[in-house]
Design a protein around this nucleic acid. Structure first.
Lengths: 104, 104
DNA sequence: CAGTCGAATAAGCGGTGGCTTATATTTGAG
DNA sequence: CTCAAATATAAGCCACCGCTTATTCGACTG
């Protein structure tokens, strides 16, 4: 079942951390697991949840499964935040500065 | 216990909707309840959760309790989204346009 | 004062979420 | 061919969540 609620999927801190790591670079399950104090099945389950929300995709290679983040899936969350950011004007300034710093 | 996880608090769709309404304008509990197909205690419980996350504040007046959103509490969420927005370059353009459109 | 209204709390219940251990499945290694 | 490694799935456990109804509490009204 694709497109499960992104909010709920990212609500869990561990799962959020998994997503964050996969934003940096593609990783295998075992590699991922090394960073967390939970079992391998737990990791696989988090990955399944993230995959269900489209936040992550899988690339199989032999017996390895490499995962990487799919930030486009953040769409609904980004939209929501952008909408409610408007209720917080001071914050807009800060964001504009961030953007300005980004283009060389 | 203040500063409970904002992600988890906003993960529930009903609670998120409550927050959204309170972003528009201050409302009493009864007024809020009118917009949802759930009981008054359920509303109060959602409000307690939102208050626990600092997302909402209360103004008492007689036997009425008026609530309004406190968008600053979105801080952690906004920061997070802004950080991971960077992994999605196309989106950055869109955001810049939104910002541009905002200052006439 | 008695009665009522707005709201919060208590208590309980079904469902779900995240974790575990155990097991299955696929694939590479020797 | 056999075994071990990498991952997924199954099953069960317990805590928590969102809801309900019942009750309580405080404040206005008559």
């Amino acid at each position: 079942m694709p497109d499960t609620d992104v909010f709920r999927t990212l609500a869990d801190p561990t799962r959020r951390a998994v997503f964050e790591r996969l934003c940096r670079r593609e990783m295998s399950v075992t590699e991922l697991k090394a960073g967390f104090p939970i079992s391998q099945p737990a990791i696989s389950q988090h990955l399944a949840a993230l995959r269900g929300a489209g936040l992550v995709c899988e690339r199989r290679e032999g017996r390895f499964a490499y995962y990487r983040a799919q930030p486009q899936a953040l769409g609904p969350l980004v939209d929501w935040v952008d909408r409610y950011r408007l209720f917080w004007p001071e914050r807009l300034e800060k964001l504009k500065n961030v953007l300005k710093d980004m283009e060389p």
